[in-house]
Simulated scan of single mutants.
Amino acid sequence: MQADYTEYHFSPGFEAGGFLFIAGQIGLDENGDPPEDATEQARIAFTALGEVLGEAGLDFTDIVSLTSHHVGGVDRILEWFPKVKDEFIVEPFPAWTALGVTGLAIPGLVVEISAIAQR
């Protein structure tokens, strides 16, 4: 993620006041392309979220707030997103906000996930 820091001038994670603020993570495959399957994009994004947590010596149980941004109808995400989320997030469950958006930074992306973790 060093390239994002250098090129776009943002931190994947930033610690302040005992919290780690994690920038939105997206689901690009090994070729840098978004998979067509939304669940696969979400899994890749959660994996990237875990990498940022790990760099800070934290894990998914330290997340206190989770925000997911969804393209193409936030009303349909309950059919699939909670199942993927539950592969990574366990009790005690963090606060979760799901937002519908018209688009994300890279064409083809349908989900972006950000979080706040407590040290």
Score class of each variant (00 low, 15 high):
Phe81Trp: 13
Trp80Ile: 05
Glu40Arg: 00
Trp96Arg: 00
Phe93Leu: 12
Val74Asn: 06
Phe88Glu: 06
Asn31Tyr: 07
Ala42Phe: 10
Asn31Lys: 05
Glu55Cys: 03
Lys85Thr: 08
Thr97Tyr: 12
Thr61Ile: 10
Ala45Thr: 05
Glu79Met: 07
Glu91Arg: 15
His70Arg: 02
Phe60His: 04
Glu91Leu: 15
Glu55Met: 03
Phe93Tyr: 12
Phe46Gln: 02
Ala38Arg: 14
Lys83Gln: 13
Asn31Arg: 04
Asp37Phe: 07
Pro34Cys: 01
Glu79Tyr: 09
Phe93His: 07
Val84Cys: 04
Ile44Ser: 03
Leu53Trp: 03
Pro82Cys: 07
Phe60Lys: 01
Thr47Ser: 10
Gly54Lys: 07
Glu36Cys: 12
Arg76Gln: 15
Asp62Gly: 02
Ser68Thr: 11
Gly50Trp: 03
Trp96Tyr: 10
Gly73Phe: 14
Glu36Phe: 11
Glu79Gly: 13
Ala56Val: 03
Phe81Ser: 03
Asp59Ile: 11
Gly32Met: 11
Trp80His: 02
Val84Ile: 15
Pro34Glu: 06
Ala95Lys: 14
Ile77Leu: 13
Glu79Pro: 10
Val90Asp: 13
Asn31Ser: 10
Val71Gly: 04
Leu78Glu: 14
Leu53Arg: 00
Pro92Gln: 02
Gly73Asn: 15
Asn31Glu: 14
Phe60Ala: 05
Ile44His: 02
Gly72Lys: 04
Ala95His: 15
His70Lys: 01
Gly73Ser: 14
